[in-house]
């Protein structure tokens, strides 16, 4: 039996409900919030600031440092062990790699930009939500970047190509699942993150990616609107 209709009634290429905000953490130099379905991520940017330890300095450009963290109560009812884990370190690394191609830190050699991402609630697709939130936060902090990276998971659930898998689909019991988190630079279509859990043929991967294109544009739109809304709010307050 194949997966014909999604369990929550979404169309194959439909994402979950997206909420994006900027400037949610007043003390940070820049901050972002990205919620997709029941997965939500907060990102805070500090810097560029002095970089310790010195042996990590890059004299040619600033360094981007991401810290991804799932909160202990954020999972599927089982407590996530607090602190860095093998998984969160890996995700921090792939996030840096996904965001670095758009950022231009050549103005601040030997310095570091810190991006902290916390997830209070997760329902699959957490690294994608984290990347989307981090992009908002970095743009909000005024870091030079040629675009904001949009990320969403695509995949195959029991033969059906879908966009933005939730946990139930990701852990689908009665068929094969391929979960493929993807990050894209919306203005050029370049892919900066592509990982895969499960199996999918080249044709299936291509089909899943092609199907996700509107979703990336939708996320990019939400990210841009989030930052504009922040400044529009102040302008509205003035008029009152």
């Amino acid at each position: 039996m194949a997966y014909k209709k999604r369990h929550d009634g979404r169309k194959p290429a439909e994402t979950r409900k997206i909420i994006a905000k900027a400037g949610v953490i007043p003390k940070a130099d820049g901050s972002g919030y990205f919620k997709i379905g029941d997965t939500e991520a907060y990102a805070a940017v500090y810097g560029p600031h002095e970089f310790h330890p010195r042996n990590k300095h890059d004299p040619k450009r600033g360094t981007l440092r991401c810290t991804y963290n799932m909160m202990p109560f954020s999972g599927q009812g089982n407590r996530v062990r607090p602190g860095p884990s093998r998984r969160s370190k890996e995700i921090s690394l792939v996030m840096e790699n996904a965001l670095r191609p758009v950022t231009d830190l050549s103005d601040c050699p030997n310095a570091v930009v810190d991006v902290f991402i916390e997830l209070p609630q997760t329902d699959a697709g957490s690294r994608c939500a984290a990347i989307s939130a981090a992009s908002i936060a970095m743009a909000d902090a005024g870091i030079k970047m040629r675009d904001m990276v949009a990320a969403v998971a695509v995949g195959m659930v029991d033969g059906l190509p879908v966009v933005d898998l939730d946990y139930e689909e990701e852990a689908w019991k009665t068929g094969d699942v391929a979960d493929i988190p993807v990050a894209m630079i919306p203005s050029t279509g370049e892919i900066t993150l592509l990982q895969m859990d499960g199996h999918a043929s080249t044709a299936e991967l291509k089909k899943a990616l092609e199907q996700a294109k509107p979703a990336f544009q939708q996320i990019a739109e939400a990210q841009r609107a989030a930052i504009k809304a922040r400044y529009a709010e102040a302008a509205k307050k003035v008029k009152e």
Partner: peptide, 19 residues
């Protein structure tokens, strides 16, 4: 207010500067 990645102008007549 413009954000990174936003298209500001099309065509060769306009010139990019700071930011």
């Amino acid at each position: 207010v413009v954000v990174p990645g936003e298209v500001l102008a099309q065509g060769m007549e306009y010139l990019p500067s700071q930011g």
